[in-house]
């Protein structure tokens, strides 16, 4: 089992805020890897680094052995065809129907005749359960349906890897269940590598083969869900169990309570 993505000792800052300091991780091929962490710790940034929308100041980001930051424009676009990203909002193109959205990568990157495109699109829509919704426009879809449509679009070119950015955020339990099932099934039936970035711990833990927990600009835990639940650090334990207080404190930094209330200097 080799690693499709390797991140080696990456330092990344946006402006003056540093987001990663010495982050190293691997994404094993053919498995579902969950990336967990508190809000704002840079999980989406990780996906953008892998897709080379952002470049790290230091360190290497390797996809299938290629350093993403060093690729020229056409090589970069070629490599990007091998991966797909599912954005948080689905990011369907608002002026096209669902069918046109899913057909878009085929029309852009292949010269397939129209009838074959129609067949492929219907197949992909069927796999996400939306074959009957092809004629709708994105504004007519619910959030969950929009994400499933975007998912169909991201598998239409049969990529090697799909990156999911907060796929479960704000979904009702039924949609969440559907998405969890889809991610799991697609990964198995299509032999994909999946990276799921989320903070819906239970959902991710139920399907992930491999987990990475990030906080404080570093990796604080890597391993199978079982390993982390048993042997993870305090921070990891707090995150996985959802305890309100622990290494991530409840109280924002402040003066001692009685001092603040009574105005007595200690």
């Amino acid at each position: 089992m080799d690693n499709l993505v390797e991140i080696k000792d990456v330092y990344f800052s946006r402006g003056e805020r540093s987001i990663y300091e010495g982050v190293s991780l691997v994404i094993p091929r053919g498995k579902i890897t969950g990336v967990l962490g508190p809000s704002g710790c840079g999980k989406t940034t990780l996906l953008r680094l892998i897709g080379a929308q952002l470049k790290a100041q230091q360190g290497e980001v390797l996809f299938a052995g290629q350093d993403m930051a060093k690729l020229g424009r056409s090589a970069l676009y070629e490599t990007r065809k091998r991966m797909s990203m599912l954005f948080q909002s689905g990011a369907l193109f608002s002026e096209m129907t669902v069918f046109e959205n899913v057909a878009f990568p085929l029309r852009e990157h292949t010269k397939l005749p129209e009838n074959i495109i129609q067949t492929i699109v219907k197949m992909k829509l069927e796999s996400v359960g939306l074959r009957g919704a092809g004629h709708l426009s994105p504004s007519e879809l619910s959030g969950g349906m929009a994400r499933r449509a975007a998912l169909a679009r991201s598998i239409v070119l049969d990529p090697e890897m799909i990156m999911y950015d907060e796929p479960f955020a704000g979904q009702d339990p039924i949609s969440m269940g559907m998405l969890v099932k889809l991610i799991d099934e697609l990964n198995d039936t299509l032999g994909l590598t999946s990276i799921v970035v989320s903070h819906d711990v239970n959902e991710v833990m139920s399907i992930a083969d491999h987990l990475i927990v990030m906080a404080n600009k570093k990796i604080v835990g890597q391993g199978t869900p079982q390993e982390l639940r048993e042997n993870g650090s305090e921070l990891v334990q707090q995150f996985l169990s959802g305890a309100p207080d622990g290494p991530v404190p409840f109280h924002f930094q402040a003066k001692p309570y009685h001092t603040d209330l009574l105005g007595v200097s200690s």
Partner: peptide, 17 residues
Amino acid sequence: LMRATEQLSSLEMMAVD
């Protein structure tokens, strides 16, 4: 709005400029 709904990023990731 296309940038806010990540449609532009989507295009980039789909290897379309």
